[in-house]
């Protein structure tokens, strides 16, 4: 009797499970359509076509395609196209320059735009220099305004752990940096430093936000040349104040211990440089002696016959 009852309960449970799974799979399938961005004016009817393009005055083919899938992950997915592209986008000529792009972002993000224009990047941007970074260079993984993502997303180029790599796309380019007299290998020296190692070996967790990267010392939208006296790293006084932000009580001595993105040399913290040489000699000679002894011992132990004394 109890056996029959058991079978009845088990059978019912199995039935519920089957129904539950059917409902679950159904819901999943129904909701598994592609996430959409807001498109009130049906722009994507044409612009969602990958081959959609135009030919400009110089005979250049320009793609007019907007990738809806990529767009659906962007920070602005709930903002309609016309917010940035005006109410009558086909009538308004769009000069596609970095500056015009920054202006567009600045129509909403006014504070950041103002800081950016006064930064070393912004000042060069206004001069028409195409090398410099502007909004999309640091906020989109493919430098595309349609795929700007929020800084707290793990794959955002401006997420804390990714910032050094983002800066390095330009500042790791020796030829490009040579044009501006920046000879220090800033990326490599950062990665060798305490901060860089902490960042590289750290996780992607939000707790990692307390670790220093490029922007913590140099600033973000208001980033300035180290030759600019207003830069937080220009001169020992500014540098000390910058160190103090994370190292309370750090004085000028502490800041003076920074190698300045350069290797130690007779001119740059000579004690560290000569310590390096001393240890290189010590390490090489001690290891050489050790290796010779071990090799000689291996010769003895193997010719004498293993374990035969």
């Amino acid at each position: 009797m109890s056996k029959a009852l058991d079978r009845g309960i088990l059978g019912r449970l199995f039935l519920f499970l089957a129904i539950g799974m059917a409902v679950g799979v159904g819901l999943f399938l129904m909701s598994a359509t592609q996430a959409k961005a807001i498109d009130e004016n049906k722009c994507l009817t044409c612009h969602g076509n990958p081959d959609f393009s135009k030919t400009n005055g110089q005979g250049q083919k320009i793609s007019l395609y907007v990738n809806e899938k990529a767009m659906s992950f962007s920070a602005h997915r709930f903002i309609d196209c016309t917010t940035c592209h005006t109410n009558d986008p086909h009538k308004v000529p769009t000069p596609l320059t970095k500056l015009s792009l920054a202006e567009r972002c600045g129509s909403c993000h006014q504070y950041q735009y103002k800081l950016h224009l006064d930064s070393i990047h912004g000042r060069e941007l206004v001069k028409g220099n195409p090398d410099v970074a502007t909004c999309v260079d640091c906020h989109s993984n493919d430098r595309n305004p349609h795929t700007v993502i929020r800084v707290l997303e793990y794959n955002a180029p401006a997420y804390k752990k990714n910032i050094a790599d983002t800066c390095a796309t330009c500042h790791g380019n020796e030829e490009l940096m040579a044009n501006y007299g920046i000879v220090e290998k800033v990326y490599e020296s950062y990665m060798r430093s305490f901060h860089g190692k902490a960042m590289q070996l750290g996780t992607y967790e939000i707790t990692q936000l307390d670790k220093a990267t490029c922007t913590n010392c140099h600033g973000t939208h208001d980033i300035r040349s180290v030759d600019d006296t207003r830069s937080p790293v220009a001169g020992l006084d500014n540098l000390t104040k910058t160190c103090e932000q994370c190292h309370p009580g750090a004085g000028a001595n502490f800041a003076a211990g920074f190698l300045g993105h350069k290797e130690a040399s007779p001119q740059n913290i000579p004690v560290a440089h000569y310590t390096e040489i001393l240890f290189r000699i010590l390490l090489t000679s001690v290891i050489a002696v050790g290796a010779v002894v071990v090799i000689a011992a291996i010769v003895k132990f193997s010719t004498k016959g293993w374990r035969k004394e």
């Binding site: 190292h247 001595n253 003076a256 560290a272 240890f279």
Partner: peptide, 25 residues
């Protein structure tokens, strides 16, 4: 921070070199 309160700044990069190279030794 405490060390550079009474020692010059160069002790920091020098300490790193000495520490890691002595460790390798």
């Amino acid at each position: 921070v405490q060390a550079t309160n009474f020692l010059p700044g160069w002790v920091l990069p020098t300490a790193l070199v000495a520490h890691s190279d002595e460790a390798m030794l």
